[in-house]
Design a protein around this nucleic acid. Sequence first.
RNA 1: GCGCCCGUAGCUCAGCUGGAUAGAGUGUCAGACUCCGAAUCUGAAGGUCGCGCGUUCGAAUCGCGCCGGGCGCACCA
Length: 554
Amino acid sequence: MKQTIRKLIADALEKAREAGELNLNGLPDIVVEEPKDKKMGDFSTTIAMVLAKIEKKNPRTIAEAIAGHLKTAEGDLAGVEIAGPGFINLKMAPSFYLRGLPEVAERGLSFGDSSLGQNQKVLLEFVSANPTGPLHVGHGRGAAVGDMLGALLKKAGYEVFKEYYVNDVGNQMNTLGRSTWLRYQELYGRNIDFPDDHYQGEYIKDVARSVQEEKGDSLLDQAEEEVLPYFREFSGRFILNGIKEHLGAFHVEFDSWFMEQSLYEGDSVSRIIDGLKDKGYVYEKDGAVWLKTADFSDEKDRVVVKKSGERTYFCSDIAYHQNKIRRGFDKIINIWGADHHGYVARMQAVVETLGFDLENFHTLLVQFVALKRGGEKVAMSTRSGEFITLDEVVREVGVDATRFFFLMRSSDSHLDFDLDLAKKETPENPVFYIQYAHARICSIFRTAEEQGFALPEVSKIELSLIKENEELDLVKKILAYPETIQKSAQALEVHRVSHYLQELVGQFHSYYNKHRIVTDDRELTLARLFLVNCLRTTIRSGLGLLGVSTPEKM
RNA sequence: GCGCCCGUAGCUCAGCUGGAUAGAGUGUCAGACUCCGAAUCUGAAGGUCGCGCGUUCGAAUCGCGCCGGGCGCACCA
């Protein structure tokens, strides 16, 4: 919609130039916005003020020159005003908006799709929690954000590939295996000394019981070195399966599960290090191998290979990102927990040394989630193993509410997740507010059908009967959906869609309370049903992106 | 000490990448169902946009400096 207005203004600028009123050496971006106060019109542009500097003329003079050339082919520009320091305010006739409505019905759920991404291939890596314990709520937030961002980017014309990176290598896995081994012995009444730095959570006992089911006591009297590899591998697989299960229950799907281990099959990792050495990015000091990340934006260089000869986790990450780049992605997006922000600079350095354009490398940091119950924060500690898992929350409040709560706030803001509120089926709960609008529309259609109404094809509907202010505002808001999607995708900010939906259905609820949809006037009823049907399509599309269901009855 | 994020109504948060008189939900108060779903709606009250400089026609938004909260600063992963 704004795109149309932008073109309108661009045409007027061109005519003003032809008429010799403006020079226009270098055209700046034309900013079109909707004024807060509707009295100022439907759209507004600041172009005259922006041009004032370049043209060295009074902004109001420029505004008048532009305004004189403004007109649409259909003649639905209802008024132009110049206000304040040089705003150009446009008022549009209802027909301008109504012309956009049939497209919504025609496109259905593909309404809002765009070619913004030009089929660029995007690798979206998210969650990637270590397979040493169940997902907690913080992972859940990352999962919801990543899943929605994937859907959003797809809608915006990108080819999206969602990946979970599994850190199945390293000391943590040894510790995990040993934790299970100790719990396993405990099951048989052996006295064990369970160290503080081992995994304390109750879930380790579940893993041990699972070993018991599979192997009985056959491992009990073997030497630790003999059985540890088995325990390590078993525990990792067991926990990863649990993670997969919980993500599935949360309706989050991945295209691939990338195992860190696979990077070490063959000699690719050493080749990468050699490659970086050839380029002069790598050096040896104190018996260790370092990458010169400080030459880029990082604060100091980082160790790649330890004195002991072991590779660091960072080393794997270099290889992993090299792998991502080699797979030919145009854009690489990582979604990390806020506690990883210290790694952003060094990964950017890596990506640069690998010759990938930083413009197309993004790291999104998702801030922490604080759970609240009864107004009190719920304590969480990974160390003691006492934390609320994603699965527990999903089971308690449901997928819809959980996803919505994770997606309603900007992800770089801390999130207060009120479990009591999320569970409520009351007006305070924003999820139900939106779902209720959808159910209400479905109910209207049930009533309309009972009374013999059925929507005919668009051409047989008299759209000009839609003329109440509340209706036209609703039409406007519906038509703003594609732009919301595009901006949200561009900014990589998923919460904008949630806010948009709340505003959209808010307008609908007001409209509904003021005007009747189904009336004795047949033509009017059909026009309004058509409008409301377009709205329903928009809600379905939007909630679809969030991964929230759209019930027809509640 | 250094770095990243945050600070907007009592509470939880938006604010469209610099625009006009800063918005919503919730809470408080007052109202609306013989009529398509009251899980809804209408209205009122509620603000030094943490503080101070600066940039310019114009700042919640950009820059610098403080203050407060969170999180990081390993040859751990």
